[in-house]
Amino acid sequence: MNTQIKFTLNGSPVMVEAPGEISLLRLLRDHLNLTGTKEGCAIGECGACSVLLDGRVVNSCLVLAPQVNGREVVTIEGLGQQDGAHSASDLQAAFVKYGAVQCGYCTPGLVIAGEALLRSNPMPTRAEIIDGIAGNLCRCTGYQQIVDAIEQTALQRAERTQQHAAAKVQE
């Protein structure tokens, strides 16, 4: 049974006709062609399908598609967007720089989880970062490089905020 689903996706309003009994993950991949969000376990254990729903990270395999009606979803494709143009976000660039990407399958979910963590806790300790990505499984990296990438992004953002503040004072 098809149903109409209207929501905000990566900052833009979308309307899509889709079966009401599919997951948000299937809606994104099969009906909206956003294949950056991956299906790993499909039972909420691996975090590969992580997206932001109203700003909070959730497993999109555990969200029923029509549940997002009237709500806001951000996928990995939405993170690097600025004024409609695509480029890697600072966190995505740090993942590349610090070797946090190997096979790449878990990467979109980990970047989303890392972003959610940094938005709620801009200066996490390493232990807090490890806690923050506890819902994301990676079989390649051993996690250290991923923690490095998130930690360095936090430092860079803090530095930029300080520079902004200093520039404001000078003005």
């Binding site: 975090g47 989880a113 959610a116 506890a134 819902g135």
Partner: peptide, 9 residues
């Protein structure tokens, strides 16, 4: 439970 994806839902 530890994992944000689960505790948020």
């Amino acid at each position: 439970v530890r994992t944000m994806q689960v505790t948020n839902a």
